[in-house]
Simulated assay, not measured.
Amino acid sequence: MRILYDGQIYSICRNRGINRYFQNIIQNLPSEFTPAITTNDGSNSYPVHSNLKLYYCSGKETLPKDIYSWYEKVYFRTVALLGQFNIVHPTYYMSVARCALSSYHSRLRYPVVLTVHDLFPEIFPEQLDPSGQQRFFKQEAILAAQAIICVSENTKRDLIKYYSIPEQRIKVTHLASSIDATLSYGAESVPSNPYYIYVGGREFHKNFDRCLQAFAKAVSIQPDLFLCVAGAPFKLNEQKLIAELGLEQQILHYEYPSDNHLAKLYRCSIGLIYPSLYEGFGIPPLEAMSCGTAVITSNNSSLPEVVGNAGIMFDPASTADLTEILLWLLDCPIERECLIKKGYERAKLFSWEETAAKTIEVYASVAE
């Protein structure tokens, strides 16, 4: 089977969950498959597969913008036509040629499989998509797809709610963790003080401000407690809030740590704080369980589906509830160890091999 992965996601972001999703799908494809990625970014790290073909459109930095835009569309359409693919699986809702998937692939007549990871713009339109552009391109992509993959049952329910998609067009394939406790015994440094860890983005819906507020109250009672934050550098508004809460000495930042370092940070922590207002799946809680730490997370969206009874759930609107949990878990090592054991067992239910196998089933259901 020849599969074309329209590589727009590689032009948008790196070190994010969607990139890792396609990396694991592609590297777990059977050896007789031929995956191909179209991209205009030659500096990225791409998935590994014995038959992978990378089609790179050069000239982005040297050609005039209008000329490159025309050349790019011609190049990618030519690759798609000459490649005689069985299926197209876009990595984003817009094509790498920066146009709607419905118009880009209509001439190619290949079946389209689309993965919907979440409905952030639909649920938080004013904060995350005030212009409506993301929703426009997503709707166009959904209309162009013969089959849709959702990464959780919750995302499937939301997709049906917001777009009235027939249920028979949707298949759920859960995600998995790419790291586990076996990576966590290297020489990487971790704090000597007891600490919690926060991992991932810090956009509006991630509820990071409440996390800081709850942590500040916990520190007022347990002043030796630290918070490790893994991810992008702090923005000015975050730095301001940290200063206002008097947490400059209690917060340690790790900018995109390696997998080994992240696994060790997880394992040596008291627990992960994941207070999101909404998630399409939620990989950090699964990573935390795989690496041997307790999980404190919201009781909404897909998170109960991921964590099950192996974590502590709370109302993400309640700062007081989170503070109480942080102090309780710190003082209850026996209960914490029980959560860790449950987490290990829960994490075993998710694997990238299973995700890839279910994805291949979707490919086969629509392939020419």
Rank of each mutant, 00 (worst) to 15 (best):
Q8M: 13
R16H: 13
R20T: 15
F22C: 13
F22A: 09
I26E: 01
F33N: 10
P35L: 07
P47Y: 06
S50R: 15
G59Y: 15
K60T: 10
K65S: 15
Q84C: 10
V88Q: 04
V88E: 03
T91P: 01
Y93Q: 06
L101M: 11
S102M: 02
S103H: 08
H105Q: 06
S106I: 08
L108G: 13
V113C: 08
D118F: 07
F120H: 10
P121M: 01
E140W: 04
A141C: 00
A141T: 00
S152I: 00
N154E: 06
K161A: 02
I165K: 10
L175D: 09
S177C: 05
L183D: 03
E188Q: 14
V190M: 06
G200S: 08
N207Q: 09
F215T: 02
A218G: 03
S220R: 14
D224E: 14
G231M: 03
L236M: 11
E238A: 05
I242T: 07
G246R: 01
R267G: 08
C268I: 01
I270T: 13
G271C: 05
P285T: 11
I296N: 02
I296M: 15
N299C: 11
N300L: 09
S302E: 00
D315W: 06
S318V: 11
T319S: 13
T323H: 07
E337I: 06
C338K: 15
I340L: 14
G343R: 12
A347C: 04
K348P: 03
F350H: 08
S351F: 01
E353V: 10
E354N: 14
A356S: 13
E368V: 14
